[in-house]
Write a protein that binds this DNA or RNA. Structure first.
Lengths: 109, 109
DNA sequence: ATTTTATATCGCAATATTACGATGATTTAA
DNA sequence: TTAAATCATCGTAATATTGCGATATAAAAT
């Protein structure tokens, strides 16, 4: 085996899982934080900021792109990355709903 | 290789990543939703609700437990699972901070 | 004591992830 | 045209994940 049975879950569950999966790595969290902190497109100075090889960073960026969380535009020799506002909004709403759906109750272990 | 270089990231980045990773699977999202929807401990009727084998569900529950997101208490023959309020609160605050740190700006691609 | 019920663990096969060196592609500079 | 800079992709090794049957464990019922 080794492959997730996506058929048995809802569209929403699968989508949320894939967004979370894309973020579920410290390097990718760091990348997103840098992009957000720059408050603009970041032209991959990420290799120097993080301590990972260029190929590795590129791969992480690809995963974030595939998940639709970021987008990259070619700017001369460089490529500028920024947050995809739609995906981020989806994440905020879906995750927000999910997280706030739990209310601490006393009738529990 | 194949193993994450946790040393080069902050404690917070690693912690958030591990929490996200634990949730980043449709089955585990479904499990959490069921636990939350029950608004109480759920005594593993999960095997019938989801379409996965008992061994698989047990494994997913273990991962959620290892991440500290849920806790299980033995109740006779059954085991009752519920959300770990502390972990959930951490998730809400950390993820909340992270998600709201991005403000859609126009100076972007 | 034995059986039933509910859950956990083991072992395995298939696949996915992580990391990186090497190489390729593309645009600007010389 | 050639060289430099920047990023993507390929190939590969190490490790992790997913799923499940088989089996183990432990409490309750008989």
């Amino acid at each position: 085996m080794g492959l997730t049975k996506t058929e048995i879950f809802t569209e929403e569950q699968n989508k949320l899982a894939s967004l979370l999966k894309a973020m579920a790595h410290p390097a990718r969290i760091a990348i997103l934080q840098q992009i957000i902190a720059a408050n603009a497109c970041i032209c991959g100075d990420l290799v120097e900021e993080l301590g990972l090889a260029q190929a590795t960073i590129s791969q992480h960026l690809k995963e974030l792109k595939n998940a639709g969380i970021i987008q990259g535009t070619i700017e001369g020799v460089k490529v500028c990355y920024c947050i995809e506002p739609k995906a981020w909004a989806l994440l905020e709403s879906q995750l927000g709903n999910f997280l706030t759906s739990y209310k601490k109750s006393e009738s529990c272990c």
